[in-house]
Simulated scan of single mutants.
Amino acid sequence: MATPKVEIYTKFYCGYCQRAKSLLNSKGVEFTEYDVTMGGPDKDKMMERKPGASTVPQIFIDDKPIGGSDELAALDREGKLDALLGL
């Protein structure tokens, strides 16, 4: 099974972002982080990928929008996250 591409859009000093990254790190998952604190092209790309997304983090696994920190934690509690991550 190929390693999935994990991407996370974050902002500086975002507790929810830290929590999501901590969960991914605890599973040994590599991810690409895009800081959208000051807006710019990465924020535009986030909005294009998930229209209406106004909060961070926004997490994508293999280009599928997962949601934020709460949704990521819920997937983990339900035992579904490891399968998405190829673990």
Rank of each mutant, 00 (worst) to 15 (best):
Gln18Ile: 15
Pro57Ala: 11
Val29Asp: 08
Lys11Glu: 14
Leu75Val: 06
Ser26Lys: 05
Ser26Tyr: 00
Asp70Glu: 10
Glu30Arg: 07
Asp35Ala: 10
Val6Ile: 09
Leu81Arg: 04
Asp35Met: 15
Tyr13Glu: 10
Asp63His: 01
Lys27Asn: 03
Glu33Lys: 13
Glu7Ala: 05
Val36Asp: 04
Ser22Pro: 00
Asp76His: 00
Leu85Tyr: 05
Gln18Cys: 09
Tyr16Ser: 06
Lys27Gln: 12
Phe31Cys: 12
Gly15Thr: 14
Tyr9Ile: 14
Asp44Tyr: 01
Ile8Leu: 01
Glu7Ser: 00
Gly15Pro: 00
Phe60Gly: 01
Gly40Leu: 06
Val6Ser: 03
Ser69Ile: 07
Asn25His: 11
Glu30Ser: 14
Glu71Ile: 02
Gly52Leu: 07
Pro65Thr: 07
Asn25Lys: 11
Ala83Arg: 04
Asp35Tyr: 06
Lys50Asp: 10
Ser22Arg: 05
Phe60Gln: 05
Thr32Phe: 11
Thr37Gly: 02
Gly68Cys: 00
Thr55Ser: 15
Thr3Asn: 09
Ala20Lys: 10
Lys50Val: 04
Gly39Met: 13
Lys64Tyr: 06
Ala53Val: 03
Tyr34Thr: 04
Pro41Asn: 05
Pro41Asp: 06
Met1Cys: 13
Val29His: 02
Lys21Asn: 02
Leu81Ile: 07
Thr37Ile: 14
Lys27Ser: 07
Asp44Gly: 02
Thr32Lys: 07
Gly15Lys: 05
Lys64Leu: 06
Tyr34Val: 02
Ile8Tyr: 05
Gly15Tyr: 15
Leu72Ala: 09
Ser69Tyr: 00
Glu48Ser: 10
Ser22Val: 11
Gln18Glu: 14
Asp42Asn: 08
Thr55Gln: 09
Tyr9Phe: 14
Gly15Ser: 07
Leu85Ala: 08
Val36Asn: 03
Met38Lys: 13
Leu85Trp: 05
Glu33Val: 09
Pro41Ser: 00
Glu48Pro: 00
Thr3Leu: 12
Glu7His: 12
Gly28Cys: 12
Ile66Phe: 12
Lys11Gln: 10
Gly67Gln: 06
Met38Val: 02
Ala2Thr: 13
Ala20Tyr: 06
Asp70Met: 15
Tyr16Phe: 11
Met38Ile: 15
Ala2Trp: 11
Pro65Ala: 13
Lys27Thr: 12
Ser26Pro: 01
Pro65Asp: 00
Leu84Thr: 14
Tyr13Val: 15
Ala83Lys: 11
Gly52Glu: 12
Asp62Ile: 03
Leu72Trp: 05
Glu48Asn: 04
Asp63Lys: 00
Val29Arg: 11
Pro65Phe: 08
Met38Asn: 05
Gly40Ala: 05
Ile66Tyr: 02
Cys17Ser: 13
Val56Thr: 09
Thr32Val: 12
Ile61Val: 13
Pro51Arg: 04
Asp42Trp: 01
Ser69Phe: 08
Gly86Met: 15
Glu48Met: 11
Gly28Ser: 10
Asp76Arg: 00
Asp82Thr: 01
Ala74Lys: 14
Asp63Gln: 15
Ser54Pro: 03
Lys27Val: 04
Ala73Met: 10
Thr3Trp: 07
Met47Arg: 12
Ser69Thr: 01
Ser22Met: 03
Val6Gly: 00
Gly86Thr: 11
Ser26Phe: 14
Glu78Ser: 01
Phe12Gly: 08
Pro65Ser: 06
Pro4Ile: 11
Gly86Ala: 14
